[in-house]
Lab assay of single mutants.
Amino acid sequence: KPRVVLAPEEKEALKRAYQQKPYPSPKTIEDLATQLNLKTSTVINWFHNYRSRIRR
């Protein structure tokens, strides 16, 4: 699969959402995906990867 490249404003929106709730509910994930015009799997993976990046 080709890698999804996020626009800077999409990254900022995801980071703001992460600061509010690092483990978002499925509803929140769905809303974010719709709002940013991304797949839910992309949003889920971003949160998973961002949490692991923060832990390093």
Rank of each mutant, 00 (worst) to 15 (best):
A33N: 04
A17K: 04
L14M: 10
D31T: 07
V5A: 12
A7R: 10
A13T: 13
Q35Y: 11
H48Y: 14
E10K: 11
L36K: 01
E12V: 04
L36Y: 03
E9N: 09
T34V: 07
A33E: 00
K11N: 12
L14R: 07
I29E: 00
L32Y: 00
L38Q: 10
R51T: 12
P2F: 15
L36P: 05
R3I: 03
R56S: 08
P2W: 01
Y18C: 06
N37E: 01
T28E: 15
A33P: 03
E10Q: 15
A13L: 14
Q19N: 05
R53G: 06
P2R: 11
R51A: 11
R3Y: 11
W46R: 00
F47E: 00
T28Q: 09
L14F: 01
R3M: 07
K11Y: 04
F47L: 03
L6I: 04
R55I: 13
A13Y: 03
L38H: 09
N49R: 08
D31N: 08
E9L: 02
Y23E: 05
R55N: 10
S52Y: 03
H48L: 06
I29F: 08
S25I: 01
P2S: 15
P8F: 08
E10S: 02
R51F: 14
K21G: 10
V5I: 05
I44V: 11
F47Y: 01
V4R: 05
R53A: 11
R55P: 06
R53W: 11
L32V: 03
E9D: 02
L14I: 07
Q20S: 10
I44S: 13
A7G: 13
W46V: 00
R51L: 14
E9Y: 01
P26Y: 12
L6W: 02
L36A: 02
S41T: 11
Y23T: 10
T34M: 15
I29P: 00
K39P: 12
N49W: 08
W46M: 02
V4C: 13
S52R: 07
V43N: 03
L36W: 05
I44M: 11
P22E: 09
R3L: 08
E9P: 05
S25E: 11
R56N: 09
Y23P: 12
R51C: 10
Y50F: 09
S41N: 08
N45K: 05
V43C: 01
D31S: 10
S52P: 02
T28R: 13
Y18R: 09
S52E: 14
L6N: 06
Y50A: 12
P2I: 15
Y18H: 10
I29D: 01
L32G: 03
N45M: 07
I44H: 01
N45V: 00
T40W: 14
H48D: 15
I54N: 09
K11S: 12
P26E: 03
P2D: 15
Q35I: 15
A7W: 00
S41K: 15
E30P: 06
V5H: 03
K21V: 07
P8W: 01
A13N: 02
R53S: 12
D31K: 13
K11E: 15
R55Q: 09
Y23F: 08
P24R: 11
A17V: 08
F47S: 01
K1I: 14
K11V: 15
E10P: 02
K27P: 04
R16Y: 05
P26D: 07
E12M: 09
P8A: 10
S52K: 14
S25Y: 05
R16T: 05
T28G: 10
P8E: 08
V5F: 13
V4M: 12
R51D: 01
L6C: 11
N45S: 04
A7I: 06
E30Y: 12
A13I: 15
T42F: 09
V5S: 11
L6R: 03
P8D: 00
A7N: 13
K11M: 12
V5M: 15
R55K: 15
F47M: 14
K39G: 06
R53T: 07
Q19L: 09
P8L: 05
A13V: 14
P26K: 14
T28D: 15
Y50P: 00
E30S: 13
T28W: 15
P24V: 03
I44L: 04
K11C: 08
A17M: 05
S25P: 05
P2Y: 15
V43S: 00
K1Y: 12
K15E: 14
T28K: 11
K39C: 07
I29C: 14
R55L: 02
R56M: 13
T42Y: 06
T40I: 14
Q20V: 11
W46H: 00
V4N: 04
V43P: 00
A17C: 08
F47Q: 00
V4D: 07
K1R: 00
A13Q: 10
V5R: 04
L36R: 02
S25C: 08
P24G: 03
Y18L: 04
P24W: 05
R55W: 12
A7L: 04
V4F: 08
T40H: 04
S41E: 13
V4P: 07
H48T: 08
V4K: 05
A33M: 15
K39M: 14
Y18Q: 07
E12F: 02
R53E: 13
N37K: 15
Y23V: 11
N49H: 01
L36N: 02
D31Y: 14
T40V: 13
Q35G: 10
L32T: 06
R53V: 09
N49S: 06
L32H: 01
R56E: 15
S52T: 12
Y50Q: 12
P26G: 10
N37T: 08
Y23M: 14
L38I: 06
E12G: 06
L14E: 06
I44G: 02
E10A: 14
P26F: 10
K15F: 09
R16K: 14
V5Y: 14
K39H: 09
K39F: 09
H48E: 15
A13G: 05
N45A: 08
T42L: 09
W46I: 01
P26A: 11
R55A: 11
E12D: 12
L36H: 02
R53D: 06
Y23L: 14
E30D: 04
R16A: 10
R16H: 12
N45P: 00
K11R: 10
V5L: 07
K27N: 14
T42V: 11
I54F: 15
K1G: 01
P24N: 01
T42Q: 13
R56G: 10
R53M: 12
Y23W: 04
P22A: 07
R51H: 09
P8Y: 02
I29M: 13
K27L: 00
K15L: 10
L36I: 05
P8K: 13
A7M: 14
E30F: 09
V4W: 01
I44P: 01
K11T: 11
S25A: 06
V43M: 06
L38E: 04
E9S: 09
E10H: 14
N45E: 13
Q20E: 15
D31W: 08
V43A: 01
I44W: 03
F47W: 01
S25N: 04
Q20I: 04
R55C: 12
Y23K: 10
N49T: 07
P22N: 03
Q19W: 11
P24K: 09
R16S: 10
I44N: 15
A7Y: 06
N45L: 01
Q35N: 07
R55V: 09
K21F: 05
L14P: 08
Q19F: 12
D31F: 11
Y18P: 06
L38N: 10
V5K: 10
K21D: 15
F47I: 03
T28Y: 02
I44R: 04
F47H: 00
R3Q: 10
T42K: 14
L14N: 09
E10V: 14
K15A: 03
Y18E: 09
R53C: 09
T28P: 07
H48G: 08
E12A: 05
E12R: 03
Q35H: 04
L38R: 14
R16Q: 10
R3E: 15
N37H: 11
P8S: 06
T34F: 01
